[in-house]
Design a protein around this nucleic acid. Structure first.
Lengths: 215, 215
DNA sequence: TATGACATTTAGACTTGACTAAAATACGCA
DNA sequence: TGCGTATTTTAGTCAAGTCTAAATGTCATA
């Protein structure tokens, strides 16, 4: 049970680690905190066995720290999906609010939220949501709007906003449905689809949110 | 913008005020904090013009303090509805979690949440949710399960859990519907209703959540 | 190998929100 | 009116998380 402040350090480390060795300096400037204060906190994290630190190797998350950080990122991204899909915030507004919500973590809340949102795998920015077991989804599905004409099966939806869901349902564009992408009229950004025996025209907002595999 | 800790004091004051003069002592023991610490915080609140304090009158919320406290209670109870209706927590589990969430208050979030939940007027405990303008709903609707046989119009639902909503919809028990309560079979807690031309049998879980007025 | 640039570490201090212990005040009632 | 009890207030501490300034290390390279 890291403190709120410790959680921010862990999350920052999770993000920075991808970019190579994490020096005090780098962590400090990422967080906008002085190197002196950063060192103090890194020592606390080390005494809680969440990180290891020495000058040469820099700061490294331990297995325990990794797990904690991953769960924080998971909570953050799930809240982003909630704010976007359910409350209708724009994708560029959700980050700051999720920043607040991610620290609320009573047993169960994350998993209930995940279920309520339909176990999403990507957040509104397109970043993967770490799963309960810590694995990170890889984009294997294709986004319909980026495909060449052809036959595809819908394997998922990138969003669960009621309005979008209703529209997709009314077009029979639900998971499992096979469709044929006929044309992308680029001048007005309309996608022409053959769904069952009907021809449908959908805009980019819809085509961007349909995840498919070749059929 | 009171601090997190100040918000807890304001909320406590809001609740205690109903019970008469609020002495330092009373506030302190309600919060489980020493009178000395409480005095220190009350002075801060006073310097922010959120409360007035003197020995004789005790601690009183100013108009500004009232407004702030009311919004905190509003946020708390809206989150309770979310946790109960949407995430499926039991009514006795939601308080502690809402306690955490109520302090997250970026512009807009409360109103969006309110809209998403369908502008509820009572929380899962049956307590009124202060409205955006600060007014406190009064229970004017009647709970179907507490009425004598007769004709009623449905004016609201006490809950928006999808499962409940689906069940009510499938029974045609939606807002505006007129129904006749025929009987309450007390030995097995089943309510016998006449809805349109059909006779329906519903249990207490449903009858408790239908708000009606005589028709 | 000595030096300058940059990174790290130490030292000391501040703010917030809590604490305890003890002093001051108020209040009920004998 | 004054005593005893309860409440309020003061004074001094503490821990967390931050700061600044200054001291110390490290390292590439001139």
């Amino acid at each position: 049970m890291p403190t709120l402040s410790q959680e921010n350090y862990l999350k920052a480390l999770w993000h920075l680690t991808a970019g190579g060795k994490v020096s005090l300096q780098r962590l400090a400037s990422h967080l906008g905190i002085s190197p002196a204060s950063t060192l103090a906190m890194v020592r606390k994290l080390a005494s809680d066995k969440l990180v290891t630190y020495n000058r040469a190797a820099g700061i490294r998350l331990t297995v325990k720290g990794q797990a904690a950080a991953t769960q924080i990122v998971r909570r953050h991204r799930l809240w982003e999906v909630f704010l976007h899909d359910k409350l209708g915030y724009r994708w560029d507004e959700v980050h700051d609010i999720a920043e607040q919500l991610e620290h609320v973590a009573p047993a169960d809340l994350t998993e209930r939220l995940d279920a309520f949102l339909g176990h999403p795998t990507f957040d509104p920015h397109g970043d993967p949501i770490p799963q309960r077991d810590g694995t990170i989804p890889q984009r294997t599905e294709l986004v319909l709007s980026e495909q060449p004409p052809g036959s595809y099966r819908i394997v998922g939806l990138a969003e669960t906003r009621d309005e979008l869901l209703r529209q997709l349902t009314s077009l029979h564009l639900t998971i499992g449905q096979v469709l044929e992408l006929r044309d992308h009229r680029r001048f007005d950004d309309v996608f022409v689809l053959r769904v069952g025996s009907r021809t449908e025209h959908v805009g980019r907002a819809v085509a961007d949110r349909i995840l498919v595999e070749p059929a």
